[in-house]
C-alpha cells in the first residue's frame, strides 16, 4: 500500500472508530454533549417590583432599511426596578397598538443578575409593520408590564401607561 492510500484509510478509520465508540454499541463513552438548556424553571419564584419608568417619547414607526418598505417599531428601554428576586420569575412586556391591531410581547426571565443590578431594561425587538401602517401620523399605544411568579394567583399587572407612537419617514 502506498503512503497516500494509507493516509486516506487512516483518516477514515479514525472517523469510523470515533463514531462507533461514541455510539450505542459502546456503553460509557459519549463524545457528544447535551445541547445547552434554554430555560430552567420559568415562572417559579418571586419578585417585588418597586417602580417602572416609561420614557415619554422614543416610540416610533420608522421606514425599514434597504428598501424593505415595511415599517419597523422602534422603542426606548422601559426601566423596571426590582428587589427580592428568588427563583426564576417572569416579566412580560407588552406594547399594544389597538388601532393597528398589534400587540408586541417580550418575555424576560429574572435571576441573580437582575437582583444584583436592582432591575432591568425592557425592550421590544424591532418588529415589522405593513407599509399601509405608515399612512397615519401617530398611534396611541399602551405599555403593560406583567409579572408571573408564585405570589398571588396568576400573573399580575404591575404597570400600565399610555404612550404615543410617532410615524417617521
Amino acid at each position: 500500500m502506498n503512503p497516500e492510500r494509507g493516509a486516506v484509510y487512516g483518516v477514515a478509520l479514525v472517523m469510523v472508530l470515533a463514531s462507533v465508540a461514541s455510539g450505542p454499541l459502546v456503553s460509557g463513552a459519549d463524545l457528544t454533549h447535551e445541547p445547552e438548556a434554554l430555560a430552567l424553571d420559568p415562572g417559579n419564584g418571586s419578585v417585588t417590583v418597586t417602580s417602572v419608568e416609561v420614557p415619554d417619547d422614543g416610540f416610533r414607526l420608522e421606514r425599514g432599511k434597504f428598501g424593505s418598505d415595511a415599517y419597523y417599531l422602534e422603542s426606548p428601554p422601559v426601566r423596571v426596578n426590582v428587589k427580592d428576586v428568588e427563583g426564576q420569575p417572569l416579566v412580560n412586556y407588552k406594547l399594544r397598538i389597538v388601532e393597528a391591531n398589534v400587540t408586541n410581547l417580550r418575555i424576560y426571565f429574572l435571576g441573580e443578575e437582575e437582583e444584583e443590578a436592582g432591575g432591568l431594561d425592557l425592550k421590544i425587538p424591532r418588529s415589522s409593520f405593513e407599509p399601509s401602517d405608515g399612512d397615519k401620523d401617530s398611534y396611541e399605544a399602551e405599555v403593560i408590564v406583567v409579572v408571573r411568579d408564585n405570589k398571588g394567583d396568576g400573573p399580575r399587572i404591575v404597570h400600565r401607561e399610555n404612550v404615543t407612537v410617532e410615524v417617521v419617514g
Binding site: 486516506v8 463514531s19 455510539g23 450505542p24
Partner: peptide
Amino acid sequence: LAAVADLRIAVAGIWCLLFLGFCV
C-alpha cells in the same frame, strides 16, 4: 448508521470524508 454509531459524530465524519474526497 444510528444503530452502530453516534449519529452526530458519524454525520460529521461523513462530511469530513466528503471534504477529503473533494481535496483528492
